[in-house]
Design a binder for these strands. Structure first.
Lengths: 345, 345
DNA sequence: TTGTATGCGTTATCAC
DNA sequence: GTGATAACGCATACAA
C-alpha cells in the first residue's frame, strides 16, 4: 500500500477537465464557470486532494515559509517571541520553520544553511551571535531580520543596523530600574551580569551610566556567566556576604535563581537585598517575592519580525530598524515598604 | 537586482560539465572522479550554490521535514518537548515545521492541512484535542504520532492507541503523589483540576483511585478551568476557607498560580495547606516554597517522537505506543517538617 | 566515468 | 471559458 498521493491530474480526469482548469478552479480564478468549478471542487474533495507546496513553490519562486532561528525554545522569553511570530505568520498564510542555534556559531551557520536550502521567504534570527554583516552578505539584505542580536558589534548603539534590526530599548529599561531604585533610597547598587553578549554589555553599560546620572556610586559588578536557571553557588555566597542594597540582574531567570540561592543563605528579599530582573517572564509575577522587572514586548517583536520580512519582500527593500519601548513593572522585590514580612503575609 | 538563485546548471557551465555530473559530485557519488568532483565543488562554492529543497523533494518524494503541532509554545512543558524534538530532528538532518493549534479544533485542522500541503515526512501532534481516529484516517497511520493527546477518548487507558501514541504514565505519577502525601500524614486531600481534557480526567481518576487505595477519604474536587497562569480568584478564596490539608494540582502552572493566590489570602504553604504540581517546569524548583511535582520526560518524549516517525517511515509501519515512566520529586511544598518558616529562613 | 533525457506536481503563457 | 504545453530545479534510468 504505497503512498500514492492525489495530484491535479487525478482530479482532472475525475472531473473530466484539464489539469490547468483544476488548478484555476481550485485557486478561485474568476474565469472558470461556476458549474465546472463546482464539479472540480467536488472531485478534489472526494479524492482527498492536497496541493503540493514544493511543486507550487518551484514555479512561483516563493515558499510561503518563514524561518525562525532561536537560541533555545526552552527559554520563556523566546517562547513569547516564537508565539507572536508563529501567530502572525499563520495569520498571513505563512508556515514557520523553527530551528535552534544554541548560541553556537557552527550550529547557527548550519541552521541558516538548512533554511536557505528550504528557500524560506524570510528568516528571523533571534539572539544570534553571528556577525550580522556576514549573514547579510550571504543571505541577502532583504531576506533576514535580526532580533535582539547578541553579536558584540551590536552592543554600542541601538539599533546598530540601519535596516532589518529589531530590539527592545534595554538602555531605557535599565535607566527606569535605576531611577526606581534611587527613588526607593537604595545607594549601593550592584549589577549581576549574564553571558558576555551584546545585551549584557549594553545593560551593564546602561546601569553604569544611569547610576552616575543619579549621583550614586559605581556599581559593584558580579558575573553570573552562562548560568541560565542556576545561580553559581560561590556567587550567591559572595552576594550574601557583601550585601549590596540592591542587585540589578541581567534577566529574570538569573534574578529568580539568585532569589532562590539567597533564600538558602538566609538573606531576605527585599528586606536585606533588593532585586530586579529583565524580561517579565510569566513567573516573575508569581515568584515570592514577586519580581520587579522590565517588560520586553516579546510577542509584538515576533509579529513585527514577520511584518518586516514580508514588507521587505513586497517592496524589495528591508524596512528601517526598530527600537521598541519597554516598561518597568514594580513589584515586591525592590520595594522597601513591602519588606520580607509582606512576602509572608 | 532580482534574486537570481544559482542552480545546478549554473554550476555545471562554470565547471564545464553536465548538470547530472554536478548533482552526483555534490552528493558524493563514488562514480565521479576525484578531479572533476574537486572542480565541481570549487565552482559550487565560488558561485554560492545552495540546493533547492523543493526541487529535490519533488523528485525524491520526501521533504526531510517534520511537522510539529503544539497547543502553545509559550507553555514551559511544551518548550521542553519542542527542544527535544528539534534537536533529534536536526541531528538526523530533518527540519522542523512548527505550528500552534491553541487547543482549537478549527485551528488544529488548519495547521494539519498546512503541514500536509508541505508534505511533512511525519507529524507529531502534541496535546491535540482532535479525535485521533479522524486524524489517522486522513493523514495515514504511518505519518503521525500522538503525544499526550487530549482528546477525551484517550483518557481511559494509557496508551489508548496500539501504535503511534506517546504518553507519560500520569496515573503512576499521581499514585506516587498520593502515597507521598499519605506518608506525610495528610488525610483531607483535594484535587484541583484544569481544563476538561484527557490528562485532567486521567489524573483526577487516578487521584480518586489512589486515595481510596490509601484508605483516605474521597477528594474534594475543585475546578481551575482553562486558567493557565492565573488562578481564578473565587477558587483561591474557597480553598483558603475550606483549607484542605493538601491539594493535588493538575499541573505546575496551576499549583504556582494557586501558591501565589494563597499567599495573598494569608495561607501558608505547606504549613497550612500542602501543594503538589505536575510536569516539573523549571520554576517548580525555584518557587518559594519549592514545589513537589512529577517529572515528565518531556525532552525525551520529543526525541522519541522523531525516532518513531522516522522508524515508521523506514519500516512502513508505525512502532508500538509507548508509556514513559515519570518520577516524583519531593520538595518543600508538601513536607510537614519544612513548614512555612523554612520558606522564610 | 560522464552525458542525455525524462519526470516529479504546479503555475503561467499561449492558443482556441 | 478551457485546453495544451513549457518551465521551475533536481535526481536518475539509460546511453555512450
Amino acid at each position: 500500500m504505497v503512498e500514492r498521493r492525489v495530484t491535479l491530474r487525478d482530479v482532472a480526469v475525475a472531473a473530466g477537465v484539464n489539469q490547468a482548469t483544476v488548478s484555476r478552479a481550485l485557486r478561485g480564478d474568476p474565469r472558470i464557470s461556476p458549474s465546472t468549478r463546482e464539479r472540480v471542487v467536488q472531485a478534489a474533495q472526494r479524492l482527498g486532494y492536497v496541493p503540493n507546496a514544493a511543486a507550487r513553490s518551484l514555479v512561483l519562486r516563493a515558499t510561503h515559509t518563514l524561518g525562525l532561528m532561536i537560541p533555545n525554545v526552552t527559554d520563556p522569553i523566546h517562547g513569547q517571541f516564537v508565539a507572536g511570530f508563529e501567530q502572525e505568520a499563520a495569520a498571513r498564510g505563512y508556515s514557520v520553520m523553527l530551528t535552534n542555534g544554541f548560541r553556537d556559531p557552527e550550529r547557527e551557520r548550519q541552521a541558516l544553511w538548512l533554511l536557505a536550502t528550504h528557500r524560506a521567504d524570510g528568516v528571523a534570527l533571534v539572539g544570534s551571535i553571528l556577525d550580522p554583516r556576514q549573514v547579510l552578505a550571504s543571505a541577502g539584505p532583504t531576506r533576514v531580520v535580526f532580533v535582539a542580536g547578541e553579536h558584540l558589534s551590536l552592543a554600542n548603539k541601538a539599533p546598530a543596523l540601519a535596516v532589518g534590526e529589531i530590539r527592545a530599548d534595554e538602555a531605557a529599561g535599565v535607566h527606569a530600574i535605576v531611577r526606581h531604585l534611587a527613588k526607593q533610597g537604595y545607594r549601593r547598587v550592584a549589577y549581576l551580569g549574564g553571558a558576555e553578549v551584546a545585551s549584557n554589555v549594553a545593560r551593564r553599560a546602561a546601569a553604569r551610566r544611569a547610576l552616575a546620572e543619579a549621583g550614586l556610586p559605581r556599581p559593584r559588578l558580579y558575573e553570573g556567566g552562562e548560568a541560565g536557571w542556576r545561580c553559581p553557588g560561590p556567587l550567591a555566597a559572595t552576594i550574601a556576604v557583601e550585601r549590596p542594597e540592591a542587585v540589578i540582574c541581567y534577566d529574570d531567570k538569573l534574578a529568580i535563581a539568585l532569589l532562590d540561592a539567597l533564600r538558602a543563605h538566609g538573606v531576605r528579599v527585599p528586606a536585606d537585598v533588593a532585586l530586579t530582573g529583565f524580561d517579565d517572564i510569566p513567573f516573575a509575577a508569581l515568584c515570592n517575592p514577586r519580581l520587579t522587572t522590565v517588560v520586553q514586548p516579546a510577542a509584538e517583536m515576533g509579529r513585527l519580525a514577520v511584518a518586516m520580512l514580508l514588507e521587505a519582500r513586497e517592496r524589495g527593500q528591508m524596512p528601517a530598524s526598530r527600537l521598541l519601548p519597554v516598561q518597568l513593572v514594580v513589584r515586591e522585590s525592590s520595594v522597601r515598604a513591602l519588606d520580607g514580612s509582606a512576602a509572608r503575609a
